[in-house]
Every structure is written in structure tokens, then in C-alpha cells.
């Protein structure tokens, strides 16, 4: 059985159909890439799956649990996590406090109000372990807003991973990164696949072909094609709408 299945997802904004009966599945341990031209509906799809936008129709199932209609925080509790296309961290806070906040979300109640959080050793340890995994341990005391772009993207992914998801939604994790940062992020995502399945929206085709087990192509809100890397690379229709010169060049 698939780890995650989306079935007939539909969303329109007024007369514009943004996501048109999209169905796909993600298998356990898989990196499933979602590609398509700008405006194809990729980010809308991510917002529908994570619950930040309400679905007009369709069904979402993760690991046997029906997510359709659940508010975002309950989807997170059932194992869904995401990061954002535009880096979304707590800019004024230190990297450490960012990680603490993410770890805290997963570890018990956030309604505790008498105990100092700084005294909770297990939270600190989880936050530090996360920093180490993402190579952020040298920047713990720095405010997130003044980190270099590449480190902010890493922090964004680290926050998403702190909730220990079964399925991680990554919306263009490589956006705006230089080649060095990109290579680091790709290596990092490689390592993450042992912990969680990933739904990856990305424009960097080199990275997609390196990482993805399967690829779905989205165009005008519909799934144009879905398959393994080789079949997508050679798919004539996909080449026409999207890959174009990039694939042949």
C-alpha cells in the first residue's frame, strides 16, 4: 500500500481551475518529484495537501489516516510536514530558538506555562541534534534573519523535519541557491530519505534527476505524466511543455 495517496484533488479560484482532479501516490522511502512550468499549480497543490488551503474536492490519505478536512496542525500530528518556497523562519529569533520551537511542537503539550522551557533538557538535546544534522551548529546563537540564504533554507527544512514527518513536502528547497549550497542540500536530502518519504517540488532538473525515484509532471493543474526518471526524461509531451532545451541541452 502507498504511504500517501492524493485522489481527485480539485481547487478553483473563481473561474480559474488551479488544480484539476490531481491524483498521485507516494511510496514509503520514496522521493517523488513534482515538476511543471510556473503557474502549473505546484504550490497550490502543496498548500492543499498541508491544509493551508481548503480542498474543493478530493481525498488525502497518509499511512491509513484520512487527512481530508483536518486542520493543518492535526495533519502534522498524523505525520505530514512541509517547508515553504519563500523561506519561512522566525527571523528575529536565534537559530537555536527556531529549532526549539519546532521541536517543542512535537514533544508534548505547548500549554505548559509554569516550567521554564530552557530547563527542559530533552528539548535542548533534540534541537542540538537537529542543528548538527543540518550543519547549523556553528550558527546557533545567530538571528535567523541574518543567516546566509543557503543556511536559512537549511533551517527551513530542519524546522519541517523536527516534527518527525512520515511525508515531507518540500517546495523548491534549492530556490535561489548557489551551486555549492545546492550540492550540500542535495546531499542532505539524500540522507533524509532514510527518515521520511519526500514530495519534492523543484525547478532544478539536475537535482530532480539525481534525487527522484518517480516524477509527476503538472501542467495547467493536471497531471500530464507520471513515472520513473527515464520515462519522464524521454516523454515527448513533457519535453514539449517543460523540459524543452533543458533536457536536450
Amino acid at each position: 500500500m502507498s504511504l500517501f495517496s492524493a485522489d481527485g484533488l480539485f481547487k478553483h479560484f473563481g473561474g480559474l481551475v488551479a488544480v484539476d482532479r490531481v491524483s498521485f501516490a507516494v511510496e514509503p522511502g520514496e522521493i517523488h518529484a513534482l515538476i511543471g512550468p510556473n503557474g502549473a499549480g505546484k504550490t497550490t497543490l502543496i498548500n492543499l495537501i498541508s491544509g493551508l488551503l481548503p480542498l474543493d474536492a478530493g481525498r488525502l490519505v497518509l499511512d491509513g489516516a484520512d487527512l481530508t478536512g483536518l486542520p493543518p496542525y492535526q495533519r502534522v500530528r498524523r505525520g505530514l510536514s512541509r517547508c515553504f518556497q519563500v523561506t519561512s523562519v522566525f527571523g528575529a529569533d536565534s537559530v537555536f530558538d527556531n529549532l526549539m520551537l519546532a521541536v517543542q511542537a512535537r514533544a508534548g503539550s505547548s500549554f505548559r506555562c509554569l516550567r521554564r522551557r530552557a530547563a527542559e533538557g530533552s528539548l535542548r538535546e533534540s534541537a542540538l541534534a537537529l542543528a548538527q544534522k543540518f550543519g547549523l551548529d556553528a550558527a546557533l546563537d545567530r538571528a535567523a534573519a541574518i543567516l546566509p540564504h543557503g543556511d536559512q533554507r537549511k533551517l527551513d527544512v530542519a524546522l519541517a523535519l523536527a516534527t518527525r514527518p512520515k511525508l515531507l513536502l518540500l517546495d523548491e528547497p534549492l530556490a535561489g541557491m548557489g551551486p555549492e549550497d545546492s550540492a550540500q542540500m542535495v546531499a542532505l536530502l539524500h540522507r533524509l530519505r532514510t527518515e521520511t518519504a519526500i514530495l519534492l517540488v523543484e525547478h532544478d532538473m539536475d537535482a530532480v534527476f539525481q534525487l527522484a525515484d518517480r516524477i509527476s509532471v503538472l501542467d495547467y493543474g493536471r497531471v500530464l505524466a507520471s513515472g520513473d526518471v527515464a520515462s519522464i526524461r524521454d516523454h515527448p509531451e513533457v519535453q514539449a511543455v517543460y523540459l524543452g532545451t533543458e533536457a536536450s541541452g
Binding site: 496542525y73 519561512s88 523562519v89 527571523g91 511542537a105 523536527a162
Partner: peptide, 13 residues
């Protein structure tokens, strides 16, 4: 500071 992110982290806002 960032309500959307908090929702995505699983907080019952």
C-alpha cells in the same frame, strides 16, 4: 511572528 509557519509546525493556533 509567523502564524503560517506555526500552523505548519503543528501548533493549534
Amino acid at each position: 511572528d509567523n502564524e503560517t509557519r506555526m500552523a505548519a509546525l503543528g501548533y493549534p493556533i
